[in-house]
Simulated scan of single mutants.
Amino acid sequence: MTIYELLRRDHRHVDHLFKRIQKALDGRDLSEVPELFDELKVELTAHSKAEQEVFYQPLKVLAQSKEGEEYTWEGEEEHHVMRLLLNELSRLPFRSEEWAAKIKVLSEVVEHHVEEEEGPIFKEGKKVFSDEEAEKIADSMETLKEIYKTQVDQALSEDLALLQRPIEHQSYPNQL
């Protein structure tokens, strides 16, 4: 299996989880939501952390086009935003309107991310990685995902560390 096949498989699984969560929220049968969200949190966290290490980092270095490199940077930032939303969702009551709104936003962020990843990012990856390399990257990603699945809270807390830094005030010229 290549990295592209693995990522597509993961994307479809996450999409299925989002649909099940939304169906439960729409039908007001919330009994499944905590378990579904826990699975979603594990899958998205493990996927994004492993993907950044074994696919995005080398692709940023090897990208043959400026656009490919930019999409890779954007993809990493989208992973960060996803994990911030997962952090927030983990701290809110899932029966709240705020939780329902945030899970919808998370779904939209992931949907946008998948579109770009399966389009221009895969295109760039296929330019720089051979089929054999794409298979090795997939194997590495599977291994790392299993490790990250056991370290979800720690992995998510890394994204919160950025928010604990002091805000750097920058002065801008008066544009009035």
Results as ranks from 00 to 15, higher is better:
T2P: 06
I3M: 12
E5C: 00
L6M: 06
L6R: 09
L7D: 12
R8A: 09
R9Q: 12
R12A: 11
R12F: 06
V14K: 07
V14W: 05
H16F: 12
L17A: 03
L17I: 11
F18C: 00
Q22H: 15
L25R: 14
R28Y: 06
L30Q: 07
E32W: 04
F37A: 02
D38C: 09
K41A: 04
V42H: 03
H47Y: 05
S48F: 02
K49T: 09
K49R: 12
K49W: 01
A50K: 03
F55R: 02
F55P: 00
Q57A: 11
Q57H: 13
L59I: 00
L59R: 01
L62E: 11
L62F: 07
G68I: 03
E69V: 10
E70D: 13
E70N: 13
Y71K: 15
E76R: 13
E76C: 10
R83N: 05
L86I: 07
L86C: 01
L89N: 03
R91C: 07
L92R: 14
P93L: 00
F94Q: 09
E97G: 14
W99Y: 13
A100K: 15
K102G: 00
V105K: 13
V105E: 11
V109F: 06
V109E: 11
V109M: 07
V110F: 15
E111M: 09
H113R: 07
H113K: 05
E115Q: 14
E117N: 05
P120C: 05
I121E: 01
I121V: 15
F122Y: 12
F122L: 06
G125K: 05
K126W: 04
K126V: 04
V128E: 03
V128N: 01
V128L: 02
V128I: 06
F129G: 00
S130C: 09
D131Q: 15
A134C: 08
A134N: 03
K136H: 10
I137W: 02
A138D: 04
E142I: 14
I147P: 10
I147T: 12
I147V: 15
Y148W: 10
K149Y: 03
K149P: 01
Q151W: 04
V152F: 05
D153N: 14
D153V: 07
Q154S: 12
A155D: 02
L156K: 07
D159N: 10
L160Y: 04
L163S: 08
L163M: 12
R165F: 05
P166L: 02
P166T: 05
E168D: 12
H169F: 13
H169W: 14
H169R: 15
Q170T: 13
Q170E: 14
P173D: 08
L176Q: 14
L176P: 13
L176F: 14
